[in-house]
Nucleic acid binder design. Structure first.
Lengths: 179, 179
DNA sequence: GATCGCATGTAAGTGGTTACATGATTTA
DNA sequence: TAAATCATGTAACCACTTACATGCGATC
């Protein structure tokens, strides 16, 4: 329905686990959720300020960092309430716009050899993703042992394991069909 | 790199197969590519005009429709060239932002019963998609027989068959884990 | 004569990216 | 001392959606 701003929930979500800076959020997303969620600086910093204005977050300068201005954000009870309210709403289904598929259905205009190249390239990308994902999972299994979010993180990654495997199978089968 | 406007290629792509109106494009996308590509009217009509200004398309009023103004767009040689050039570029990988997963990794904050409900709802959506997709495939198999785009359309849909099946498996396995 | 499908379009706003700017601190 | 990383931010721009507006033509 209403296109609600989901970035803010991504930020509130991370901050519901522990206080951190904008920079930390950026790094953590890059490291942990690059597959299903990431934000740019131009999205993160203004959103943090907006949420602080709305009293969903509070912040303070990290003294230990000396002259380097590191601002640590923490979630407030209102922020937590907002997050919980959102969690109770049904998740909106996402539209998966895949450029490869848009090109593929125009396959009649190009030689099959070129299409095979597209799929080959796609496959290579998937295999790289697979490696990264496995490294992340290993990290979560080892370093998040006993943490309350561990099982849910693993379940999230498992979604992508399934997805990537399915995509890889499709690539292989499609390449065969084209031969 | 540069965020190129892909909507225009979606339109050029459809028009490379046969001339049609904005309304036809909208309907066709809704019917045939809702899974991996769709556009709103506010995107379609201005883009068609823009492409006509750039001489990638030409248009004429359909006389047979009487006073109802139906404008049929056709691709020009330049338009075709632009499309071919885009087809030669590597497809940019897409980011798959899935709200369900964003919520799931916050699972520590909600009871497992609620998480099961999220996944149940997701599963129901997937099963509905599966039915729609199978209907589309059947239609393409029957009515597109012999058309040059048929094999590529089927390959595209096959991608989603794989994907949806993988998602469904993940739902089932995750529900079991939560028990 | 009401409703539905055909058909084209716009205003207003949001969500988001790229690219750049600035400066401190740490490491090679 | 140069390069990499830590850290925060903005300007400019674009893609895209929602919601609305308008009117014809066919069907019930």
């Amino acid at each position: 329905m209403a296109r609600t701003n989901k970035s803010q929930y991504a930020l509130l979500g991370l901050l519901s686990k522990s206080p951190m800076s904008g920079y930390d959020i950026k790094s953590l997303m890059q490291k942990m959720s690059q597959f299903y969620w990431s934000e740019s600086n131009a999205q993160i910093y203004p959103t943090l300020k907006k949420l602080e204005n709305e009293e969903m977050l509070t912040s303070s300068l990290d003294q230990s960092s000396g002259k380097r201005e590191k601002r640590i954000y923490s979630i407030t009870p209102q922020g937590k309430a907002k997050l919980m309210k959102w969690l109770k709403e049904p998740a909106e289904p996402s539209v998966y716009r895949e450029e490869l598929l848009l090109k593929l259905n125009l396959g009649q205009h190009v030689p099959d050899s070129e299409i095979k190249q597209w799929i080959q390239d796609h496959l290579i990308g998937l295999q790289a993703k697979q490696i990264t994902l496995n490294a992340i999972i290993k990290h979560v299994q080892e370093d998040h042992e006993g943490r309350p979010d561990q099982p849910y993180l693993l379940m999230t990654y498992d979604f992508y394991i399934h997805q990537i495997n399915a995509n890889i199978r499709w690539c292989r089968e499609s390449l065969e069909k084209l031969n």
